[in-house]
Structure formats: C-alpha cells, structure tokens
Design a protein around this nucleic acid. Sequence first.
RNA 1: GCCCCGGUAGCUCAGUAGGAUAGAGCGUCGGUUUCCUAAACCGUAGGUCGGAGGUUCGAAUCCUCUCCGGGGUACCA
Length: 542
Amino acid sequence: MKNYLNSLFNKASTSLDYLKEINFTFDVPKQESHGDLSVNAAMLLTKKLRKNPRQIAEEIISNLQIDDAIISKVEIAGPGFINFFFTPSFVARIIKVVIAEDKYFGKSKKYEGKKANVEFVSANPTGPLTVGHGRNAVVGDTIANMLEWVGYEVDREYYFNNAGRQMRVLGDSVRLRYLQTLGREIEFPGDYYQGEYIKEIADGLKVEYGEKLVDEPAEGIFKQRAESVIFDDIKQSLGRLKIKHKIFFNENSLYEEGKIEELLKLFQEKNLSYEKDGAVWMKFLELGSEQDKVIVKSSGEPTYRLPDIAYHREKLNRGYDLLIDLLGSDHISTYPDVLAGVKALGYDSEKIKVLIHQFVTIVDQGEIVKMSTRKANFITLDQLVDEAGADVVRYFFNMRNITTHMNFDLSLAKKQSDENPVFYLQYAHARICSILKMIEKEDLNVSTENLNLLTSDEELQLLRKIHLFKDEILYSTENFETHRICFYLEDLAASFHKFYTFCRILGTDRPLAEARVALASATKIILRNGLSILGVSAPERM
RNA sequence: GCCCCGGUAGCUCAGUAGGAUAGAGCGUCGGUUUCCUAAACCGUAGGUCGGAGGUUCGAAUCCUCUCCGGGGUACCA
C-alpha cells in the first residue's frame, strides 16, 4: 500500500515542486475510520505556502493520478490529513504474495550484502547465567535474527575474559571448597564465590583425583576446571534457548597476539597517552570525555579500557558494516571511552551501535529478589527455563522495550495460563493448523481464485494487518526493538481470532470458503515467520 | 555534584522523526459454545500521561526547572 502511494506522490511531485522539499510520512491511522493510510504533507506545508492546509490538500489530491481499482476513496480530514482508502480487492491481493513467498515473506533485501556482528551475553565464566543475562541473551539473539531478515549476514559473538582477578578468586574458591571436602578446617572468605556449583566442581575434583591436589595452586587445575565446567554450563543454558554463538573471543588472545602492546604503541605514537604517577593515562579529555583515564595501572596491568578498545579494533578490522554491543546498564560507562578510542585511531565509530538494556527485577510471590553472582543469591536462567519453558522465557524478554526496567514476575511466568500472551499467539497458529487439517476432510482447497469475495470488516482488518508485516520488521530492526514484533503479532492474532469467530468456513459457499482458507493460511505463515524471528516455536496443536 | 534509563488505567506495559477522541494485555463486572480448538469472542468500568513553566496550528512525545525510583561516575569489569 505504501509503495503505491509513494509512486503516486513521486509522479505528483513533478508538477508540485514543494512536495520534494518536505519529509512527509504515510502513517497507519489509529482509527480505522480514518482510512488505511494517511499523509500529513499538507500540514507540513502550511508555513511555507502560507495557505490553509485543507486547501493545500485539495491541490495535492488533484495532482494524484489515482487508480480507482486500487483506491476507493480519498478524503481530507481533521486539521489537514489526507486519508486513503484502498479497495478490498487490492487489499486481498496480498494473500497471493504471502503464500508464494511463504517462509520468506517479510524478508527484505534492504541490507543485502552487508555484514553485521552482534556481541551479546559476554559473561565471564564465573558462574551460571542468571535472569539478568537471560534478557541480554534473548534480545541479542533476536536482534541478530531481525538483522538477518532485512538482509544482513550476521555473526553472533561472545567476548570473555578468563585471566582477570575474578577468575583467580574463582579458582581459589574451588580450591578452598576442595580442601573442605577433604575435611580440612578452612574458613571460606565472605567475598569468595558462595554458590553451590563451586562445591559441585570441588566434589568432582575429589572424585577424580582424591587427595592428590592438596598442594596445587588455585590458578592451575582448580581455575581451569572451574572455567571449563562453567562454560559448558553456560553454553548449555544458551542452547536451551536456541542461542548459539559463532565466535567465542577470549580477551587473553589480545595479549598473546601482542594486540595490547601494539595498541599502546599506537596511542603513544599518536600522542594520545602519557605517563603520570607510574601509570599510563589516555587523553580522553581531548577526545571529548570528562577526564583522562588510566589505561595501564602502576602495577603494569591494563585496565579494562585498553583491551576493550583493542577488541573493538579487531572487530572493525574484520570488515563488518555494523557492530552491535548489547550491554547491561551497569556497563554503561565503558562504551564512550571505547568509541572515543577507536575513533581516535581513525576508525568509523558510527559503525558501532551500543545498546543498553536496563535491569530485570525479579519478583517472586510479590517479593523482590536481589541478585548477586558472588553471593549466589540469584535465580539462574536454567531455573527459569525449567519452570516457564524456553518459549515463555524468550517471549517475556522480547516483549519489553530494553529501555524499561522490566519486572519479571516469576510466579506468573511459571503459570501456563491465558495471562500469558505467548500462548495467545501459539493458539492462533494451532487453530489455523487445525483448520487446514479440517479442510482436507471437507474436500476444500487453499484457493486464491476468489479473493475479491473477502469484503467483511473482519476479513479486511486481518488483511490490513498482513500488509504491515514487512514494514514492521524493517522498522523494528532499524530501531533494534524486539518488542514491536511482539505487539504486532498480538495484534495480528487478535484480528485472526475475531475473523475466526465471525467468518465461518463450513457452511459457506465454496468460493468464499476457499478464499477464507487462503486468508487463514496466509495468517499462519506470518505468525510462524514472526515467531521464528523471536525464536519462539509455532506449535501445530495445543 | 555530574551522566544514562524509567515514572502513562488497579497491575504489567505500548504509544512509530510532534498529529485526529491517549491504547493493549491481565485483573473487575456482565454476556457468548446443538456450529472448523472457549488457551477464544463480545460488552462494561477504570487516566490531573510524576509536577510546573515554555515552544506552535497541535505536546505523553521537543526545551527549561523540579520530585521519585534504578544504574553509572575507580590505578574493579
């Protein structure tokens, strides 16, 4: 529909120059009585032309070469909107396209040939993934899916560090638990990792090695074992949510390959760093930050900024057109320095899109659960998937704008009831599958021969929603907003359920019945495609 | 102190580069099943869009100030 109007306005702009000067938009009116699409062009021109917007609207309309077979009515309304009403037969044509394109319907080629990298999760292997990581994981994977739908080739990447202080403490936590299982009287420090999983790892070592490890250092087998066990666990948790990273990037490799040294030298050459108080400082002040910051401590150890910049430099060097970093709001302070750093090196920092998601508050039985990995006071992602199921978990995290501090009501998520919108969508899909099974028995077909018979309000409303799918994906993707897909699909499902209630198939003349089956079939395709972007399954029956 | 995010119906949240009478789900109350899945549908009630100014044809949306909640502001990541 939008395409058609765009071409109409393009033609009109050859005689009306002022149309070229404004950025008008075609919008779907909130109210159906305002037509299928409306344009605000006339209002935008009031100042420039010093005319009443309604007069301008008249002039615009008289310059549009409208095909009556496509548009049934054009009206001027309100302060000067031009509303367009499309003919039912044009609206219904979309069904043919949907059925023909099937699992590709909704994809666009706008970004074909472009490469994107989505870095997400990136939790260090110090413990199981928590609910907070869950939001990051689900949204990151969904954004990657969306980018693929608009044409990008996408690499999913996980960045981790197995060499820092955190990991030393982790190794020592395992060592102490190991010694405790051997009966040693040892006090376990309060700031060590308290979780049960540490004891399990220690138990595993005891079973395997007995007492042979009593004199081993924390950084040896204890740390290694902890890392490998925990990482396997993390990957498995992600796998349950159908998330698989292509690249696992170890921060340590930046040191091993001399990238850190190289970067330090580069900063020095470009006069972007200096020494003070035994530390190396970066001139962030010159680069637009509030103050200079330390990049190498007086101990000789780099701060996180240096490897972070080196890492982003690596990714940029791989030739991506778009780099996405998905971070929790507790990491919000890291990215301005990274962007400033790579920009100072001459890279196009515009390619890096940093997305910050706000915290997840867990509410269980009306009580807020405070989370801390160290204190082991957390709900793991695994527990969540155990209790609510992967589909519900994915849907819940996707259905909220990442800027909101979302409440995750654990007791509600466990409930498999109609309070849960994911079932509403899945039910619509299952219903359609059931119809398609039924028509076989009734000797009916999916036919697009008589689509012009689809003229009822319910049919047209559903058809109009179908028209919006492709644009919705594109818009959601360009804004990195997964929740819009959820809202769209809920809207679509609602239109379908209404159609289902009012437009029967059995007992209807064959041509109309078959056209309705085709409409249901097209709806099924969109529900399935939309759910697949979210990573949620589309069951055949419920 | 300064920076970022949020404050919209009882609850959880939408609100598309400013647009028409501010919406949805759940919950409330009341209806619909001899008929393709009632995990559905229809109706009902519910609002000083945190507050105060400003910008203009028009503000939940933009600007200023302010209140409340969360996060950040390290030679921790």
